[in-house]
Simulated assay, not measured.
Amino acid sequence: MQPLRISLETAQKLAKVLGVPIEQIMHMPPHILINKLREWEQKEKRSGSS
């Protein structure tokens, strides 16, 4: 599997937000990354509305 085609800065921001190592972000399949971002978004919505 090839690394995601995202910039280093984007990978660093995603790693920080999702709490995973940058290497894992770079080699994560795109559909899994999208699912993790959806989960994070839902968590933010729940915590933000309290």
Rank of each mutant, 00 (worst) to 15 (best):
residue 39 E to P: 06
residue 27 H to T: 06
residue 39 E to A: 13
residue 42 Q to D: 03
residue 45 K to Y: 06
residue 20 V to A: 07
residue 18 L to F: 06
residue 45 K to N: 05
residue 33 L to F: 03
residue 33 L to D: 00
residue 30 P to E: 12
residue 2 Q to C: 07
residue 1 M to G: 08
residue 39 E to D: 10
residue 50 S to K: 09
residue 3 P to N: 10
residue 24 Q to E: 10
residue 30 P to V: 15
residue 35 N to Q: 13
residue 41 E to F: 09
residue 31 H to Y: 14
residue 44 E to Q: 12
residue 30 P to D: 07
residue 13 K to R: 12
residue 49 S to V: 14
residue 20 V to E: 04
residue 47 S to E: 10
residue 9 E to I: 02
residue 37 L to T: 11
residue 49 S to W: 08
residue 41 E to K: 14
residue 17 V to I: 15
residue 23 E to A: 13
residue 41 E to I: 11
residue 37 L to C: 12
residue 48 G to D: 04
residue 50 S to Q: 10
residue 49 S to M: 11
residue 20 V to Q: 04
residue 46 R to Y: 10
residue 48 G to P: 03
residue 2 Q to N: 10
residue 28 M to G: 00
residue 15 A to K: 02
residue 32 I to F: 04
residue 10 T to E: 09
residue 26 M to K: 14
residue 18 L to T: 09
residue 5 R to M: 12
residue 28 M to L: 11
residue 21 P to F: 02
residue 32 I to D: 05
residue 40 W to Y: 13
residue 41 E to C: 10
residue 4 L to M: 03
residue 6 I to D: 00
residue 38 R to W: 04
residue 21 P to T: 05
residue 35 N to K: 15
residue 2 Q to K: 15
residue 45 K to D: 03
residue 15 A to D: 01
residue 33 L to T: 04
residue 37 L to V: 09
residue 30 P to Q: 14
residue 25 I to A: 00
residue 20 V to C: 06
residue 19 G to V: 01
residue 37 L to A: 11
residue 39 E to V: 14
residue 19 G to A: 03
residue 38 R to F: 08
residue 41 E to A: 13
residue 9 E to T: 11
residue 48 G to L: 10
residue 34 I to T: 14
residue 14 L to T: 08
residue 49 S to D: 07
residue 35 N to G: 07
residue 10 T to H: 06
residue 9 E to D: 08
residue 34 I to Y: 02
residue 14 L to H: 02
residue 23 E to Q: 10
residue 4 L to E: 00
residue 46 R to N: 06
residue 40 W to K: 15
residue 19 G to R: 09
residue 11 A to Q: 01
residue 50 S to P: 06
residue 7 S to M: 04
residue 6 I to H: 01
residue 14 L to F: 05
residue 30 P to M: 07
residue 9 E to A: 14
residue 7 S to K: 14
residue 31 H to S: 15
residue 2 Q to P: 11
residue 4 L to C: 01
residue 35 N to D: 09
residue 20 V to N: 02
residue 21 P to S: 04
residue 4 L to P: 00
